[in-house]
Write a protein that binds this DNA or RNA. Structure first.
Lengths: 248, 248
DNA sequence: GGAACGCTACGGCGCAGGCCGAAGCATCGA
DNA sequence: TCGATGCTTCGGCCTGCGCCGTAGCGTTCC
């Protein structure tokens, strides 16, 4: 019997639909996109996209992270990207380095609060700096500061050790809405943000969740967080419609 | 309008049909199979398989080599195999090392004549030994012996240099029917076979195209052809039906 | 030269599945 | 608490295409 064949065909069939293929290609840069964005990129209605994403989930090609009323989809892993890459080679065209349309206000993308912690490129930068420096360790349910990480927080006047078994995780990743990469959330992240406001390193803009890193704040943070650099200044390109709009 | 998406989807769609996927998987060991065999492996009628193969050809996934009344199909290249490999990984099962059903008599598979030259594992061995030793160069329309190759043929009493612009190619690849890999055909291959019969290195079996390499022939050939080893002794497994027969 | 065989082209049947409209939950903001 | 938004499920329409029967062409073998 050995019905071993169909499985490969099932995966390929999932990739073989134009709408699904467009979605997967849009996810190839590793970022997470919402269902609506993927629907728009694929040129189909949200209901249709939802069905496609459900099938891609079932096939193990994408994963989803629910966050608020959004659901962020991303490729399930590098193996999926590798196959897509190979298919692009076969179809005679390399990846063109697609970029997500960013209609978001530049101020919000640069730095903003996410509930009680920082997000935007500011939040991403903090996350990446601590992660790259080995100050964070991945633990169950989130991150845990390492010995050096605890020292960094302590220097900021933040007690990293969990006092009295606080039920709220000290640090955990939070998918950034504009950058689509994780920034830091949790008790310690909130404390860090609070400290920044107290010290005048970061100020709230009026009528917006966007915040502004002051000059002294920039310098202070780069000292307090080894490896942290403000203004990553990631270029943003214009949106590109992948498929023609559905005919009327 | 940058309709870059569909191409990837087209290739994936070709791989996404069960029948076509079975065919491609069957071709993954690099050998060439006939349309009928592929039809049988895919569990579809020959007409259906023909259509599938036509589409795979158009998509650049397979190539075809017409030989007599057979048409041998093989994967278009290692890139195709790489994608299939990746898809097998995603589908959660590594390649199981499928093998072509070999109903062919073991004697025929071992060594036989193909018109006027040797085929079977004997022919494959000769081809591979000369190729691996750098005694053959690929030229227009076939192979040409290199300087060292000419010496090998000369030692066997065969004049490799084309006398009087013989229209028949001295050496050319011929797709082996049982092994599905090229062996050597052409004037020099015929002369080599003739010499082997003359010297008693190879004897014809009766009532068959199968031939037998004698003991002294084995030793002599291994001396005459550097790197040649008789009896590769490739294991042959039983045929496996991939899909259930079509329902009546 | 005739029969057998391998392969492909054509035509029609039938089903899988892609698509959207309408409706139902859940979440966020005021 | 109410409306707006994001996402999903359900139902029905409809195209695409996988499938085989029949037929035609080229090759091989007797």
């Amino acid at each position: 019997m050995s019905t071993q064949g169909p499985y490969l065909a099932e995966i390929a069939h999932l990739m073989g639909d134009p709408a699904r293929a467009n979605m997967l290609q849009a996810l190839m840069d590793g970022r997470a996109l919402t269902a609506k964005e993927l629907a728009w990129l694929a040129g189909v209605a949200p209901q249709t996209a939802s069905g496609h994403l459900s099938r891609l989930m079932q096939g193990g090609l994408v994963t989803v992270a629910a966050q608020g009323r959004h659901r962020y989809y991303r490729l399930a892993g590098p193996e999926v990207a590798a196959v897509l890459e190979g298919l692009m080679v076969l179809s005679g065209q390399q990846g063109l380095g697609r970029r997500l349309p960013s209609r978001v206000g530049e101020e919000l993308s640069e730095a903003r609060t996410c509930y009680d912690h920082f997000a935007g490129r500011l939040g991403i930068g903090i996350h990446d700096a601590l992660m790259a420096g080995g100050h964070l360790a991945v633990s169950e349910g989130g991150y845990a500061p390492t010995r050096s990480g605890e020292a960094i927080f302590a220097a900021l006047g933040i007690e990293a050790a969990e006092g009295g078994r606080s039920r709220r995780a000290g640090l955990r990743p939070c998918l950034d809405w504009s950058e689509r990469r994780p920034h830091l959330a949790g008790r310690l992240a909130a404390a860090l943000a609070c400290r920044c406001f107290e010290m005048g390193w970061v100020r709230r803009r009026k009528d917006s969740r966007a915040v502004l890193v002051t000059e002294e704040g920039r310098a202070a943070l780069e000292v307090a967080l080894p490896g942290f650099r403000c203004e990553p200044a990631e270029p943003v390109s214009l949106p590109v419609r992948v498929r023609e709009p559905a005919p009327v």
